[in-house]
Amino acid sequence: MARIIVVTSGKGGVGKTTTSASISTGLAKRGHKTVVIDFDVGLRNLDLIMNCERRVVYDFVNVIQGEASLNQALIRDKRVDTLYILPASQTREKEALTKEGVEKVINELSERFDYIVCDSPAGIEHGALMALYYADEAVVVTNPEVSSVRDSDRILGILQSKSRRAEMGQDPVKEHLLLTRYNPDRVQKGEMLSVADVEEILAIPLLGVIPESQIVLNASNQGLPVILEEESDAGQAYEDAVARLLGEEREHRFMSSQKKGFFSRMFKGG
């Protein structure tokens, strides 16, 4: 049986798809058979970030509606061969994701994969509910600002009440906080909530802190999951997060501002 992990947030634009791409790539890189599903029907993005948009023939909705088999729709990643992508449909409505249809696909994937990563759309509507319904674990992506924290809180409440685990009275969905776009300098100036603030408000365990970085944007534009930028802060932060997700103990990094060295100050790099 696969572990089903939903990447969710409530709020849009906080880095769900970036995180889904990096976490699924990170899991696959460690040899786990992993599939990442784009639940954002109508606004598909995951295939762009995974650089496989030109290989999409069939999609998630085709499979649900029996127009294609799972094998026809799954796209194998070119960089990590234990990673597969199930893209979203760009032309359908979110309502095409029926509970029974999603269950059928997830059950089928469950037999073949170790990890199923569900990339949730923003909001708390049908698409987001479907993405989280079958989850065993949830990575709640949050930016260090008040509205994002509020929306994450809302999603945590929904995970507790509307997921399959909640409805069946099983153990609750395991919750992880992933703080993205973190900028220690701005925290120090009081322009951003600190890690401690967010942890205190949301009261769930911290999976990782991803520093705000130009590299994240560049990687997305190139269709490269950030975790593969192994030299970068953000890439290493995702690597740490994946390790923690698998139960490893790693110290949190990139949470305080680093003193810039002589050269970086001279050349305004970094």
């Binding site: 708390i124 509020r150 929306d151 809180d153 809302r154 945590l156 409440g157 929904i158 507790q160 009440s161 408000i201 009261a203």
Partner: peptide, 27 residues
């Protein structure tokens, strides 16, 4: 025993309500 999250409502129609966790904004 669990946090009452944004958008959630907890109702004790007859007696007292005791919450051993935060009651979040929007709850």
């Amino acid at each position: 025993n669990q946090p009452v999250r944004s958008g959630q409502q907890v109702y004790a129609p007859d007696g007292d309500l005791i919450i051993l966790a935060p009651v979040q904004a929007g709850a």
